[in-house]
Design a protein around this nucleic acid. Structure first.
Lengths: 107, 107
DNA sequence: AGAGATACCTTGACAGGCGAGGTATCTCTG
DNA sequence: CAGAGATACCTCGCCTGTCAAGGTATCTCT
């Protein structure tokens, strides 16, 4: 649903990190997982996804490595770093805070 | 708290419209009301506030008129239009939708 | 007289989202 | 075997909302 796309703006990084808290993964799979977990209501645009990866790796919150490309298209796997885990925990708290604020303002 | 400011991004217009659903008001008062309703945890930056007013009026979601400036600084009052009311109701639903999605993705 | 609150406004920079375009491989179907 | 569709990655450049910084003018209190 593109209607909500604007409203989720700013949460992209946390959403990606949340996936990587579970296990190492790669772009395509992460996006599929997001779709599955929201019943198809939400997905990241590829350009958004990959630019977020770049930012997160630049910031040292994730690291990447190429998967075994014995078969199929090559995959770049991402792993969350200790810094990324700390960042994710803070982000989650901030989301709860933001949610409380908006709930208070949209009665 | 500036930390959450980024996360509230995209909700500015809905937040303003919510205030105008109660009564006509002006910029400064709206911002004070927002601070009061969030226990001081949130406020809009002036530049953000006034650029949002411009967008909303341009879009026909609010209208404006100058208050009686018999005393004190002049005030530009804003009123929500019927279109604005419809927009607000939709925005509120979209917020609930976005909240559900993010809650699902940040376990 | 000066500080601080009230009240408005504009400019320009910045960052994130994303449409559009590209590459390459694998699998399934006719 | 040709072609479609899924998998999987990536970049360029535009658009939009936010906001730091700067400005104006009035009122109240000390």
């Amino acid at each position: 649903m593109s209607l909500t796309a604007d409203l989720v703006r700013g949460h992209t990084e946390s959403i990606i990190l949340a996936q990587l808290m579970e296990r190492d993964s790669y772009g395509y799979e992460i996006n599929k997982a997001i779709q599955a977990q929201t019943g198809g209501d939400y997905e990241l645009k590829e350009a958004t996804l990959y630019s977020a990866f770049r930012r997160l790796e630049q910031a040292g919150l994730i690291s990447s490595y190429w998967g075994d490309a014995t078969t199929g298209a090559r995959r770049r796997y991402y792993a969350i770093t200790p810094n990324g885990q700390r960042f994710y925990c803070r982000s989650r708290e901030e989301w709860h805070n933001a949610r409380r604020i908006i709930d208070a303002l949209l009665p």
